[in-house]
C-alpha cells in the first residue's frame, strides 16, 4: 500500500472511508488491523502534505522561450 502519488483529497477520502468501515465493525480482526495500519499511514501522509507546500507568489510571463516565473513582490 503506497500513499505516494495520491492527492491530499484522495488520501482524506480514503481515510474517511476506512474510518467509516472500521466504525461499522463488520470486518474481521485481521482486516481491521490492515485497515487501521493503512489509516495511520494516510494520516501521516495528510499531515506531511499539509506542511509540504511552500509559500511563494509568482507571476507567469510568456516569453519567446515559453513561460517563465518571476517572483512577485507584494
Amino acid at each position: 500500500m503506497n500513499s505516494e502519488g495520491i492527492t491530499f483529497e484522495q488520501a482524506m477520502a480514503e481515510l474517511e472511508g476506512i474510518v467509516k468501515r472500521l466504525e461499522k465493525g463488520e470486518l474481521t480482526l485481521d482486516e481491521s488491523i490492515g485497515f487501521f495500519k493503512r489509516g495511520v499511514e494516510l494520516t501521516k501522509y495528510c499531515n506531511k502534505k499539509l506542511d509540504e507546500a511552500e509559500r511563494s507568489i509568482t507571476m507567469l510571463i510568456e516569453g519567446e522561450n515559453g513561460i517563465t516565473e518571476k517572483e512577485l513582490s507584494v
Partner: peptide, 8 residues
Amino acid sequence: NVNIKLYP
C-alpha cells in the same frame, strides 16, 4: 504555505 501563480 501556499503557492500563488498569477497569470496577468
